[in-house]
Design a protein around this nucleic acid. Sequence first.
DNA 1: TTAAAAAATGTGATTTTAACACTTATTCAA
DNA 2: TTGAATAAGTGTTAAAATCACATTTTTTAA
Lengths: 229, 229
Amino acid sequence: MLNSYETEDKVLLAVDCIIFGFDKEDLKILLIKRDFEPEKGKLSLIGGFLKKSENLDDAATRILNHLTGFQDIYMEQLYAFSEVDRDPVERTISVAYYALINVENHSEELNQNYDAKWFSVDNAPKLIFDHDRMVRRAISRLRYRTATKPIGFELLPEKFTMRQLQKLYEAILSKKLDKRNFISKINSLDVLVKLEEKDMLSSRKGSYLYKFDQEKYEEKSSQNFSLNL
Amino acid sequence: MLNSYETEDKVLLAVDCIIFGFDKEDLKILLIKRDFEPEKGKLSLIGGFLKKSENLDDAATRILNHLTGFQDIYMEQLYAFSEVDRDPVERTISVAYYALINVENHSEELNQNYDAKWFSVDNAPKLIFDHDRMVRRAISRLRYRTATKPIGFELLPEKFTMRQLQKLYEAILSKKLDKRNFISKINSLDVLVKLEEKDMLSSRKGSYLYKFDQEKYEEKSSQNFSLNL
DNA sequence: TTAAAAAATGTGATTTTAACACTTATTCAA
DNA sequence: TTGAATAAGTGTTAAAATCACATTTTTTAA
């Protein structure tokens, strides 16, 4: 180990955010059209640079808020991407974060100064630099997370139907799930509250709305439960 | 997003390595006595700084090799630690890596220029900075890895007994496992080859040695299997 | 009134997991 | 040479979890 810090290289540290949303049908990511060179006009994750006065979590929160207006968002550090030539302008290491938000609650507050749009994960366009790799890794982490945390809480509106929850999990896992088995597995987690209220939009019969029980959710969440769908 | 790189802060990017070893009984980590200020004389992970000309994986490999002499080692990026005051000297972000090596094969080649010693994970001493957090996170990742990759390959000598493999998993997971159930679960993975040869050191009767089948190991490894012990 | 659409609901077969104890092979010592 | 000691090796069974699967219900719009 070298014992002098002075002689060491310093680098730019970027933070890029994979922002997942769910619109009752598809899993989406929020992308912006890059408005400066290089790769101006191409699509990219939202990102920014770490300041000396903040840690990475704070930087990710700040960047997300600045470009979208979103606040109080679930974020998790994903991975540090560091290929030497990943950014053609300057040696930059990027620490990727992913965020989970619910599209409906946040679509009005989306900061229109930046040309951000939702894209379906399944047919997302090509992104700049190594951002595609970041997205792929984020999806894979998100799949893993479904088994350890009640992710739906972050991606769904406050009240939702069982079918919506199931569609969310199907979108994340890219596979069809059995309705009855899904319901019983979810119920066995014991984090949902069934409401009296029905959602009449989806069918003639209407379907019961559910919400997460905050307290139970947090309890389960900290215990790192295991959910196999 | 700002469109000029020049005005952004640059930082030192450290790489710290949690080096796991297994000596047939305990899970260990390799620590060094830090030979410069601050915290001189205290124990720390081995570490170094990223150079502009290399990516993080390469830096981790270089640092591991430089301080220990080890080569061809399994390493995996863990997490970026970035608290503003984590290093009192200079704003430094550290990307932690963990490595798996087998103590026997590598104990002679251990570079004696650096005062590196093995410590049992269970009663490890207090480390400098946030290195304890790093170790805790590494253990947790390692536990998760046992369910997705045949980790033993990296930590055990070429030939080993079933009991040694079981002890390794017990050490990683911090729990006793049932002998018979363990064997049948491991066998169902179909990555081991039973040899004619016996290890006569551990008992009067002697126990059969096994080795990993490299080809099957790699096949399984890429498929991300699931092993519940 | 009835046709249509999605919601709600339970069971049984199969697979996986978990708990459990005795016999075998060998060496060392009496 | 005999037997005491040591760890290795080996199957079964009960319980739990998982998976596959089809019919009835409720409502509205035609």
